[in-house]
Amino acid sequence: MKIAAVQMVSGPDPVVNLARARHWLEQAGRQGAELVALPEYFCLMGQADGDKLALAETPGDANAPIQRMLSQAAADLGLWLIGGTLPLRTPSAERVRNACCVYAPDGSQVARYDKIHLFRFDNGSESYDEGRVLEAGNEPVAVQAGPLRVALSVCYDLRFPELYRSLAPVDLISVPAAFTYVTGQAHWELLLRARAVENQAYVIAPAQGGLHQNGRRTWGHTMIIDPWGVVLGCLPEGEGLVLADVDAKRLGEVRRQLPALQHRRL
């Protein structure tokens, strides 16, 4: 099954961001991808954290612009679509969920995962605290996308291997992200390859990658990684696609040669 990861450099205008996302989904479809994943916050990289509150949609609203675009793109292009993340309303007017919605080739929503682990970072010169506007999810989610069992996660979740262990075995781990430049440079590839190796699964990691209009710089390096930890493709910076094949034979080969998943004791 051919899969594609989209890298973007999203800005504060959702209309522009949705158009760019649709463009890259179409390009992926033309290149034979059957499953495509968008990055975290593909729909908005705002000037302030609170911008997400104004853009937030009601869960399951088929007429809401972001959810409508994702559903229509999946149906029009006949794709399994891992829709990066979008802000979904909660009962609190001051908090949203950072949600990853998955759509089938008929346009139906088949899964939703809300980011569980909220990022906080302060190195003295830059700081982030997602908890100011985000409400954490609490439920690990895997979804069957055609022949693939896919574990859903978002960005900072990557640092918590127990999330993926709770869903094992899976064929593919999805990690849409907007890693900071500082943390990405140090840890992004290291963590992605570790998750692939320890779970003996492919990893698809679509990212934000570049200098955004709000002044933030994201690390990028969108990747697809095989179950032996081999990087099959990487886009360091800027908009574009990374494509690769998920090979069931390769998955089986790795798990037969080193049956680590069968050796688990904890």
Rank of each mutant, 00 (worst) to 15 (best):
P147A: 07
R159W: 05
A104E: 05
I3C: 08
V230F: 11
T85K: 03
H263K: 12
D61N: 07
A99Q: 00
E189F: 09
L211W: 08
D114S: 08
V246W: 01
G84N: 06
Q31Y: 09
D61K: 02
A73M: 06
A260M: 09
Y103F: 15
R165M: 11
S127G: 04
N98H: 09
Q31N: 13
A37I: 13
W228E: 15
P39H: 03
G84Q: 05
A196N: 04
L18N: 01
S127A: 13
L77I: 03
Y128W: 12
V182S: 12
W219D: 14
P14L: 07
A54T: 10
L81I: 10
Y128K: 11
V36G: 05
E94S: 14
A48R: 08
L18M: 15
L211K: 12
C234H: 12
Y103E: 01
A145R: 00
Q72S: 13
H263S: 13
V170P: 05
A4S: 14
A64E: 09
G240F: 08
E189S: 14
D245W: 05
L53G: 05
V102F: 08
Y103T: 04
G215M: 02
E130G: 07
Q31R: 15
L81N: 03
E126W: 02
Q144L: 06
D61F: 07
G240V: 09
A104K: 01
A28K: 11
L81H: 09
G184C: 07
T183C: 13
T85F: 02
D122V: 05
